[in-house]
Design a protein around this nucleic acid. Sequence first.
RNA 1: GGUCCCGUAGCUCAGCUGGAUAGAGCACCUGCCUUCUAAGCAGGCGGCCGUUGGUUCGAAUCCAACCGGGAUCGCCA
Length: 605
Amino acid sequence: MFQDRLQQILLPALLAGFRELYGAAPDAEKIGFQPTRPEFEGDVTINVFPFLKLSGKGPEQTANAIGDHLVKHVEAVERFNVVKGFLNIVIADAYWAGFLHEASGTDLLRFPATGRKVMVEYASPNTNKPLHLGHLRNIFLGYSVSRILQAAGNQVVKVQVINDRGIHICKSMVAWRKFGNGETPESSGLKGDKLVGKYYVEFDKALKAEVKALEAKGMAPEEAAKTAPILREAQEMLRQWEAGDPQVRALWERMNGWVYAGFNATYARAGVDFDKNYYESETYLLGKEDVLKGLEGGVFFRKADGSVWVDNTAEGLDEKVLLRADGTSLYMTQDIGTAIKRFEEYPGLSRMIYTVGNEQDYHFKVLFIILKKMGLAWADGLFHLSYGMVDLPSGKMKSREGTVVDADDLMDEVVAEARATGEQLSKLDALGTAERDALFEMIGLAALKYFLLKVDPAKRMLFDPKASIDLQGHTGPFIQYTYARIRSLLRKAEEVPVDGRRLAGQQVQPATANYQLLPEEKAVLKLLHQFPAVLNESATKLEPSALANHAYEVVKAYNAFYQSVPVLKEEDPAKQAFRLRLSSTVAAATSRALWCLGIEAPERM
RNA sequence: GGUCCCGUAGCUCAGCUGGAUAGAGCACCUGCCUUCUAAGCAGGCGGCCGUUGGUUCGAAUCCAACCGGGAUCGCCA
């Protein structure tokens, strides 16, 4: 159980109290600390209902006795009140001030090194078409999770699998050779992945035309779909590729090269990167040996036709084929081999996280069971970071119907929206063109990333383009705005002498001991105080949305503070120093939280 | 049909390791820029937490069934 700074103080005292009063302490896990609801006085609430058997007393009596004990033994506990079975504890202002003092000197959202190494896989595109909105959810999720794990003290290895071989790329290659007239990204000005995607579509068109023609001649539809010459051609090309035909390989490398250039441009703009790429062309033969070894070990079994299977019926699943009768392997085989290879290449990995859509839930369930059955010690550290599809207001994205939202186009749109709003507000006139461009890029992407990350990954989500470029309310830009505002405040505090004295925070000791917190200050401090626990939660559950939502809560509270409490205009230097420190700590934590989400924090906006 | 995921305000989502009168944002309405950035703040409107049962002192939260939406059940990837 993760204990925040306050729980570390309260819990032992609480347990001691129970022991002293009732001769026995409850299970520490059973004690739930929760924030006191705003309609009651207090900061932390403990519900004593679960402990009535232990105390043998009524709820009020128990809560009062425990409350008395805490007040007596814990300095941070100022007073308490009891409502029904709820013990509402008021924490002394000095505690919060002390917390701020401590937090301002450290990074709230950076945990000590755990010594653990974790691999996170995300993106994993096919090389026959450009990246789209679905990839963006995947990429932002995976990237954010890797950053969160890093912040939580882990060493992280970011990888992607590039599905660079197979019938899909052969289709693009055939169409390009037939209809391309030597078109290249340079000659056409098209981004490489777009160009290759264009020929994938061309292939599909040609195939459909051929099928139609065959049907017109009286061929059955299924038959026609299988025998269309252009499809045969693609299949033949795949065989040639596998045989290592130099011309096919050369074309394949050339076209994939175009695609990688395109992908890299998209990744760069999206602000994500990888430590290592795994190419399917290099891994698709892996796993066969491992499966055969498993067969010898009795983990798998062979059927009469010679195919090799795993029996997962005991786990409530089915039998699954791992090697065909002719000895060739399958997707599952490949994934087995790739996982083993990765753990060999990165010894000491304690976890491996696959960011893959929930349509593959079953696949990963089976994969993990197999690896466990093979006796691989690390199999328990495997995790499928599953996420739901992204729907459009018009329904599902379908490539065949052309309703797919292209990743590059989408980024253009959100940035354009940020620009339109920014220019309308016209408070950035002092900035140069390059600076403004960079800023709009930052804001637009923040809107997009936050929109995709604030939702629980498990849930299918609706992508409303209009809402995603919203810059107000519960959005990434709102958080950035608060950060920029604080930075501006802090710059002024350092640069601008007010009433003849400079306001740099260090020059005056912030109030601590007898400081009376304003409700607005306390609200911010309490949320700041929860930040590490939320990071821990996000890191444990591999779920950026918790952190995303909390970051919003923090800046929302800060905005309320900012609106009604003077900082630079405060005349009492100790109070002013306290508020500056509060502001700078919020700014630091906010930029760290944004960093964990893969979002940049602007100095002004 | 089997298995898995999801169902909370008009819309998009939090809350789900059980706790007090269920929260945000958007939209709509009212106020607030001679004061540190109004991409902001304050307030209003808006709910049978899919339905029914069960467990419990207590259920949006746990269990079961049902309804609705989706995914998956290839010797495809």
